[in-house]
Amino acid sequence: MIPFAYSFIFSFLLVVFILQSVLKKIFAVNIKGYMQALTILLISVLITAIPFQGLCLAQWIFSMNANFSIPLTAILLSRVIDNASGIRLLDRNAVLTSTVFGLIAGTFLYPMALGLGRFDPYEIGWSFSFLFMILMAVTLLLIIVKNRFGIVLTVCILGYNIRIMESHNLWDYIVDPVFMIISCIYITTSAIKHMYTRGPV
């Protein structure tokens, strides 16, 4: 039940974020304020929960991927709260760190897990291994330098301990294919923007 609840929350946040983006960017509606936020939340709950061909949207998303990583959910939550209230749970530095983390983790994991070579890095995520030690070191380092992505990584290990997802493998708590693709796009666009804002030397 807990894994589906987590998946429902992810789907709900995704719907809220899409609604906010559409209203803000296409219809130029002011979405900040209690009434606007409440309306968007109610509509999002309905969209997420109303069944279509026997399954609600959350179940359709659950069908495609039951294990959206905690960093992706945290970024989504941060954007939703930012859109509604202007409060940034994850600042730009934390988002950039998370996307770099997602890109590195995904690049290491997916090619080998899908058959490149004989070593499967997914194996080290089933129970305590050096993956946990690396994650702990990265988390502590980020907390010490006061990067908020460190808190997200702490939530990852908490989620793993209480089995918030269907997966019992730590990798699924820290990275997923969608997060990796988003990380790749974010880093690429950030790099391009950075190049243009610097201007010609």
């Binding site: 305590f128 946990f132 502590l140 010490i144 290990i157 793993y160």
Partner: peptide, 20 residues
């Protein structure tokens, strides 16, 4: 920061203890 460090260490100690 200190509280987060302690929490992180404890949360990582749990799977290690369970495994061993």
């Amino acid at each position: 920061v200190i509280i987060l460090i302690i929490v992180t260490l404890l949360l990582h100690a749990w799977p290690a203890w369970r495994h061993f």
